[in-house]
């Protein structure tokens, strides 16, 4: 049995060895469900999102929820203190988490969080960026690519206008922000592989 679940969306990384795989899975699911619901509520408030087909709304959320959570919870990863804060509010040291089996994904998440924080985005900018993360026409299984693409372009234009207005002397901010989209894809893929391994070997 796996003894650790190194994900801050869990209450604790320590798993009860007396619990079965499905029990651990159910507890984990219960702990991250409120955060997923918040992502759905956020999506509903994106102008135009509800006009997409139900099928595309679900697929965008399925594909993008991890990335949205990564942006929203970047502050849980403190690279200076070398800690990760879990749902219980308890901080765990990186070395401790490495001992529990955390590897390359944790390094990459720290790197991403630091770069995102370095952009010093306002709440409004972060919100619009999160909408751009979610509404991506190149997610797999999108049935009406044109509609998603049109909404994505509107959101990117709005983000660009806002960033240019708020950071007139930092011309690279918008570009650096768009590059974060690729970083998030990469993190999402790494995370999916970990999830799969966890499901196979809980």
């Amino acid at each position: 049995k796996r003894m650790y679940l190194v994900c801050p969306m869990s209450v604790s990384p320590y798993m009860d060895p007396n619990k079965s795989g499905p029990q651990i899975w159910e507890e984990f699911s219960t702990s991250f469900t409120p955060a997923v619901k918040e992502v759905v509520e956020f999506a509903k408030r994106i102008p135009g999102f509800r006009d997409l087909s139900q099928y595309d709304q679900v697929n965008l959320l399925k594909a993008g929820t991890f990335e949205v959570l990564m942006v929203r919870f970047a502050s849980l990863f403190d690279a200076k203190e070398r800690t990760v804060t879990f749902l219980s509010g308890r901080k765990y040291n990186v070395d401790e988490l490495r001992f529990m089996g955390a590897g390359e994904l944790l390094n990459s998440v720290f790197e991403f969080s630091e770069k995102l924080k370095a952009l010093h985005l306002s709440e409004e900018e972060m919100s619009l960026f999160t909408a751009v993360v979610l509404v991506s026409a190149d997610r797999s299984g999108i049935e009406n690519v044109n509609s998603v693409e049109a909404l994505q372009e509107t959101l990117i234009r709005a983000l660009r206008t806002l960033i240019m207005k708020n950071h007139p002397n930092e011309a690279s901010t918008f570009t650096r922000l768009l590059l974060k989209l690729a970083d998030l894809r990469s993190l999402n893929n790494m995370h999916s592989e970990e999830l799969l391994a966890f499901k196979i070997h809980p």
Binding site: S29, T33, V40, Q57, K62, E193, L195, K199
Partner: peptide
Amino acid sequence: FADPASNLGLEDIIRKALMGNFDDKPD
């Protein structure tokens, strides 16, 4: 690889959270 979102039960959570919206809006 297999669909991790479905494995996690994520799709079910998402559908339920969206449901209120879908009830009053034709697809």
